[in-house]
Amino acid sequence: MEACATHGPSASAGGRVFRAALPPFEYLAATSVPEALRLLAKFRGRAVLLAGGTDVLVQMRTGKRVPEAVIDIKRVAALGGGVKVERGGRIAIGALTTLADIEHDAKLRRLVPLLPEAVATMASPQVRNRGTIGGNLCNAAPSADTAPPLLALDALVRLHTRKGVRTMPLAEFFTGPGRTALGTDAVLGAILVPKPPRGLRAAFRKHGVREAMECAVVSVAVAVAKERGTIRHARVVLGAVAPTPLRVPAAEALLVGHPGGPLDLLAAAGEAADAARPITDVRGSSDYRRDVVRTLVRRALEEVAG
């Protein structure tokens, strides 16, 4: 019988009140990176950076974050800059670039269509108009839709710290749900996408209940380059099935050196499902998510390697 006593706080909390107002906070607008860093240092983890605000304000409203101060970095020129193709073919995307700008950027659509395609599945047009790619990455949701494509493209991130600028692989950036290597005293400056290997074909798959306005139950990005019928480069990345977006080297290893026939793809998909460590929540059970990983990875690979 499921009837059970519920042991919650008794005398300490009077109950629940649904708050309409955002909690009070101090608003500070930084105009430069050094200033943003100084303010972050000053508040020592009690401040939050505000770019598009589409995640931060929701978290503040639902009580998931209650910062003392909000540091608005929207006007820090060094964090903007949009999408630029550097000499050598590397693409630099300013952290403040909005999701809508990425979705519609002609260069990205030509060079790395995987990213704008994934971005187009995110939230709503209104949120994409406001939300930034930097914000999506820094929010570090396991289901963040920009992460699997960028990981599949071997993206790097440029961080501004008080000691200077440093670059690290995006794969090392995520340290847990809602946690990143930024800690409380660094700012994400740009996302760097290396020139893709020749002949790279990539695909993004997202599974949710709805067609849009959907948080991924499972997302998958794969990227494969073949030479003379043999896979020479493979990336398999999963979203929403682990504490961080997850690259699956074991699946990639099963592909490289092989022609990418149905059995290769099935094996890689199986490896990806084994690697997934999904939780059970209102969006889906762990078993279901693992099952969907297998299907989505196989289908994505069929598209690019078949």
Partner: peptide, 9 residues
């Protein structure tokens, strides 16, 4: 550009 006015300070 369209935005959700609830998500703009």
């Amino acid at each position: 550009r369209t935005v959700n006015a609830c998500l703009v300070l």
